[in-house]
Design a protein around this nucleic acid. Structure first.
Length: 541
DNA sequence: GTTGAGCGTT
């Protein structure tokens, strides 16, 4: 087997990636090691110039037919950064780093369970061991001045924030919980995920990833199984996602339609009084998954939090939910469109209602080899700007759902809510959880994204398991990387330092599950002519 | 003076 030496950047230590039998390198293989990368380049020894590697249909082709990949050291190509307004004036920073910094902004963190005696000074002092503390405050009773037992803290670096979120905290003698707050007004999000309709079965995740990587970094691709003629593509940049909505694109000769895949969490949120943590930085590496004290989820290289790793419950590099489909079906035949009527979903069913058509018209773009750098173009839409939080200069809440917050998943120790039982009885099972041979947490991540947890739990219950999500998790515990006490849902009710409540999912919250009042009101702007579609869709988002 | 799930008089 031929190996290709690839590094993230020129000069970095290369990783040897296995090529395929035909000598090509799968893009998915590359992306497994370098999430977010979309191509390769190398420096030509003779001309000293950098040359790009040919890429087509999810495959990268060696520069030479005869000598293959040769002895070149290849390095990754990442999607160009969309030009941003005010974030580009950072010095001493590569475009890539800039992008990441743009994405990984800090947010205020709530500190729960503080001792009454803790002061803002001692709070700050405690957290300064993690990094620069920009703000530390204790919420107090207005009259008495007595602490309410919680406060907020904000860090100057995302790395510090992540470490704080990853660890337990003994503050002034009491174990405290640090989370991203669910504060009101923080719940809106700019969706990063788009719905891709009219897909044919031969369009696999690699195809989608490769195609859409032209517009920006793709962090996830999800194709429902069994085949349902649509899929979801998640971008790192919500602006990119928005800019594509309403458009038709041609992938492998098939005209697919991209439209808004805004989760219907909004309704759930309002109804349940529970705010999803769709906010800003919460998309990356949230606390519940990193119970190990001192473990650095991001040991110095933010770039590794892109792409597949965003699904990684344990920071492992290979936990991509997309990975399952990598390497399969690539290059399989079956182009062609028309005549394929998949379950009544194809044809005319995916008109967007219009509210989210943002990018100045539904321009059809042919699938060319050009790299599109879409300009952000969602301002003035229905996405609120929660600007200038903490004076950090106009960041917006983003719809990054990549890293699940199981609290927000609506998972509790009783499994899905009984009040929802029966809601999905007539719903087709869209995902067989057992068919996804991956870390359950990653499935949860996916389910979180698409608010599928409730459905799946119930389908699962009926169809196979007879248990709840937790039991399923337990049964599949072997997949739970490292098995190191994944602390889904935090440590509620476990102030005992010796019992950090590992595995405790205590949040009684049905968000994400379907609710009787939700059905038929999908919050999904695609209108379908099919009678069944609205139900299916409403279950999906 | 008490208390221990929560979500911020900005």
């Amino acid at each position: 087997m031929d190996f290709v030496q690839v590094s993230e950047e020129e000069g970095d230590e290369p990783i040897e990636l296995p090529a395929e039998e035909d000598g090509t390198l799968l893009l998915s293989t590359l992306q497994a090691q370098f999430p977010g990368s979309c191509g390769l380049k190398y420096r030509n020894m003779d001309t000293k110039a950098v040359r790009g590697v040919r890429s087509n249909e999810g495959r990268l082709f060696p520069p030479s037919v005869d000598s293959g990949w040769g002895e070149y050291l290849y390095f990754c190509v990442f999607p160009k950064e969309n030009k941003r307004k005010s974030d580009d004036n950072l010095e001493n920073s590569t475009a890539k780093t800039k992008r990441i910094e743009t994405r990984l902004r800090c947010t205020d963190l709530i500190v729960l369970g503080l001792p009454w005696k803790t002061t803002e000074e001692s709070l700050r002092e405690y957290f300064e061991s993690y990094g620069e503390v920009l703000m530390a405050q204790i919420k107090k009773d207005g009259k008495s001045g007595q602490s309410k037992g919680f406060g907020f803290v904000r860090f100057g670096s995302y790395d510090a924030q992540m470490r704080v979120l990853s660890n337990r905290h003994l503050i002034d003698g009491r174990w405290c919980e640090v989370k991203v707050p669910n504060s009101k007004g923080m719940g809106h999000q700019v969706p990063c995920k788009v719905f891709v309709g009219r897909c044919t079965e031969d369009i696999n995740s690699d195809d989608l990833r490769e195609y859409f990587s032209k517009f920006g970094e793709v962090t996830d691709v999800f194709i429902p199984r069994p085949f349902r003629a649509f899929s979801f593509v998640t971008f790192l940049d919500p602006d990119v996602a928005q800019s594509l909505c309403g458009e038709d694109h041609i992938i492998k000769g098939v005209s697919v339609h991209v439209s808004n895949a805004a989760p219907k969490a909004e309704q759930n949120r309002n109804q349940q009084g529970q705010s999803y943590n769709y906010n800003s930085a919460n998309g990356f590496g949230m606390p519940a998954y990193h119970p190990q004290g001192g473990s650095h989820m991001n040991p110095g290289r933010n770039g590794h939090h892109r792409g597949n790793n965003q699904h990684s419950a344990h920071g492992g590099g290979d936990n991509s939910i997309v990975a399952n489909s990598h390497g399969s079906h690539v290059g399989s035949a079956g182009y062609g469109m028309g005549g394929n009527n998949y379950g009544g979903n194809s044809g005319g069913g995916y008109h967007n209602n219009g509210s989210n058509h943002s990018s100045g018209g539904n321009v059809n773009r042919q699938d060319g080899s050009t790299t599109y750098n879409r300009q952000a173009n969602f301002h003035g839409m229905n996405q609120p700007h929660n600007g200038n939080v903490g004076g950090n200069g106009g960041w917006m809440n983003r719809g990054h759902l990549d890293m699940p917050n199981l609290q927000a998943l609506g998972i509790n120790s009783q499994g899905s809510s009984s009040s929802n039982q029966g809601q999905n009885m007539n719903n087709p099972s869209m995902l067989n959880l057992n068919s996804l041979p991956i870390n359950p947490a990653l499935v949860a991540a996916a389910l979180n994204q698409w608010s599928l947890v409730g459905n799946q739990l119930q389908n699962q219950n009926q169809d196979q398991q007879g248990g709840n999500f937790l039991s399923w998790m337990a049964q599949n515990g072997g997949h739970n990387a490292n098995n190191n006490n994944s602390n889904f849902g935090g440590r509620k009710g476990s102030n005992n330092p010796n019992n950090p409540g590992a595995g405790g999912i205590n949040k009684a919250d049905n968000s994400g599950c379907n609710d009787p009042q939700q059905n038929g009101n999908s919050g999904w702007s695609n209108q379908s002519s099919g009678s069944q579609n609205s139900v299916e869709k409403s279950n999906f988002l």
